[in-house]
């Protein structure tokens, strides 16, 4: 018992004596961080380089697997001809319209079924059965219903977006903290204002997750929508290029789809942080 040493006799530290070891730690951490960032930057160029080498080595059919340089040339021609701008505008318009309409209806229905057991009983089973049907399965009937008009394409995207947004809103509303509702009630919040003051904001983190998933879905569904006959659009261009064996343009179109939905998702992620500002 008596021989246990304690640290009571450590002499006081000279001012700034920790600085050296602190600086070393910071340097090391910065170095590791830069290395990881550099790896991230070379990821895509490295992939393209590998692709280029394989294409040039003629291991595969160069018409079916065009080299990145061929794809780049096709992409530049696409842009230079002005068709890219038309295609992009047509696709984005469909996605944006379908997304906005689907989200608004989805949030509205989610509030209704989440708040009221009556509407949950009435609509819940119906929505749960309709939800798993992939939008692409509706292409044939949509052509019969809407012909080649824009409303048919927007309908498909609305269909794709609606269920995800509805379900996340419904769950978010059901999980609303009843304690906050009571707090609002005792402060005199009228019943009709509870949704706007508490329920919607309390469910917002859930709704935002649904809205973000729906961004991706709206681009998947765009492909189905443009399958239903279009006169412009990114996927329309891909189909056309395929019929003409312009594989370079097909790949350029695929890359454009990937890039656009990636950018849309990133933009939404930034927006989401502002939407749920208190987290």
């Amino acid at each position: 018992m008596a021989d246990i040493s304690t640290s009571a006799v450590v002499p006081p530290r000279a001012a700034g004596s920790l600085a050296a070891s602190g600086a070393k730690r910071r340097r090391d951490a910065r170095l590791r961080q830069r290395l990881n960032m550099a790896v991230g930057l070379v990821s895509i160029p490295l992939f393209l380089l590998l692709w280029q080498l394989i294409a040039q080595a003629k291991i595969v059919n160069p018409i079916l697997f065009p080299a990145p340089t061929v794809v780049a040339r096709a992409a530049m021609e696409w842009v230079a001809s002005g068709e890219f701008a038309q295609d992009l505008a047509a696709s984005l318009k469909r996605v944006a319209t379908g997304y906005v309409v689907g989200s608004i209806v989805g949030v509205g229905c989610g509030l209704l079924t989440g708040r009221s057991a009556f509407f949950s009983g009435l609509l819940g089973p119906l929505f749960q059965v309709l939800r798993p049907i992939p939008p692409i399965a509706f292409v044939s009937i949509v052509i019969l219903w809407f012909g080649l008009s824009e409303s048919g394409k927007v309908f498909l995207i609305v269909w794709g977006v609606f269920f995800t947004v509805w379900l996340s809103t419904h769950l978010g509303v059901q999980k609303v903290d009843q304690g906050l509702v009571r707090a609002a009630q005792m402060l005199g919040t009228p019943r009709r204002r509870l949704v706007g003051e508490v329920v919607l904001l309390s469910a917002l983190p859930f709704i935002v997750v649904g809205l973000r998933t729906a961004v991706g879905i709206s681009f998947y569904t765009l492909v189905a929508a443009e399958l239903a006959g279009a006169f412009a659009g990114i996927f329309y261009r891909i189909q056309l290029a395929q019929q003409n064996m312009q594989t370079g343009l097909v790949f350029a179109g695929l890359a454009a789809l990937g890039l656009i939905s990636f950018i849309a998702d990133r933009c939404f992620a930034m927006l989401a942080q502002r939407l749920v500002w208190w987290r």
Binding site: D177, G179, L180, R182, A183, A184, V198, L201, W277, W278
Partner: peptide
């Protein structure tokens, strides 16, 4: 018992 403040 819990503050139950509006977090937003």
């Amino acid at each position: 018992q819990q503050p139950r403040l509006f977090p937003w």
